[in-house]
């Protein structure tokens, strides 16, 4: 067994060494969190903090002109602390998405954006044909685009070929908390991609995030799993650990599965 001195003498497991990079920007945290559905912005900021997030997704909407004094996201979830990732939630065409993200670029100066072009409000699956078209428009316009997409490896490849900065397949429908439904599809996407793969949507609890990370993805993006937990700040912390655990397990390399038991104590020398 290690004495305390031995432990201290070993090189520390430096988590900072295990960074990931999107569009040339390095990040340490592999957990991206949304900023919707919270009780208020203060709770939202506390949960993002507990999650150890460095990137938060944000939406762009009309200012409420009848009450310009209402609380603003930027006063709580501060853009000097978190990298804002503006999204295109609510956009159903490429033109809508491009218009929204151009405004976002003007509002905040950010070129790193999240593209999501949805289809049917019942399942909120991405319209991949329209998503690919919008991606090409945004890339021409100089954006670095992280793309919410289906778990289809064929479309994932098309997105990468069109210049996506990251591929973000869904684990399950947005806000459903059903967990990772198609591990094969996500694994195939990860194996083929040269850009980061982030599982976006579908995580319901900590083990779901761990499963996503064990598949080898670069990160996980979630909103409802934290925001709609009974204690969002505590769930934020749980997700932080879950993502780290899954990442470490992936890097460590799991043992092979076996069909029968294999005793852990040696049989030799048995009295």
């Amino acid at each position: 067994m290690d004495s305390p001195t031995d432990i201290a003498a070993k090189p520390a497991l430096a988590p900072s060494a295990d960074t990931w990079t999107v569009a040339g920007r390095p990040f340490t945290s592999r957990l991206i969190v949304g900023t919707g559905k919270y009780k208020d912005y203060a709770q939202n900021a506390a949960a993002a903090d507990a999650a150890g997030a460095e990137i938060v997704t944000v939406a762009l909407r009309r200012v409420n002109l009848s009450d310009p004094s209402q609380p603003m996201l930027a006063d709580y979830v501060k853009p000097d602390r978190f990298t804002y990732l503006p999204n295109t939630a609510g956009c159903f065409t490429g033109e809508d998405a491009v218009r929204t993200l151009r405004l976002a670029r003007e509002a905040g100066g950010w070129s790193l954006v999240k593209l999501e072009v949805l289809s049917d409000p019942k399942h909120l699956y991405p319209d991949m044909e329209e998503t690919l078209r919008a991606l090409k428009m945004l890339v021409r316009d100089g954006f670095d685009v992280m793309v919410y997409c289906s778990d289809d490896p064929v479309y994932a490849r098309k997105l990468e070929d069109a210049g996506a900065a990251a591929i973000m397949p869904l684990g399950a429908p947005i806000g459903s908390g059903l967990g990772i439904q198609n591990r094969v599809g996500i694994r195939l996407i990860i194996e083929a991609a040269k850009v980061p793969v982030i599982v976006d949507a579908g995580v319901g609890t900590a083990s779901d995030a761990t499963i996503a990370m064990e598949l080898g993805c670069d990160g996980v993006l979630m909103n409802t799993a934290i925001a709609e937990a009974k204690d969002p700040v505590r769930m934020g912390r749980a997700m932080k650990h879950a993502v780290i655990a899954g990442r470490e397990a992936y890097l460590a390399g799991r043992m092979p599965k076996k069909r029968y038991a294999d005793p852990s104590s040696p049989l030799a020398g048995l009295i």
Binding site: G36, T57, V58, A59, R61, R62, V63, N87, L103, A107
Partner: peptide, 24 residues
């Protein structure tokens, strides 16, 4: 933003003013 003061507005203009809010 730098051009607000130099941008005239006229009768019938359609103006949109947006900001960031919480979203997933």
């Amino acid at each position: 933003r730098a051009l607000y003061a130099a941008t005239p507005i006229a009768e019938g203009d359609r103006i949109e003013i947006v900001h960031f809010i919480g979203g997933g």
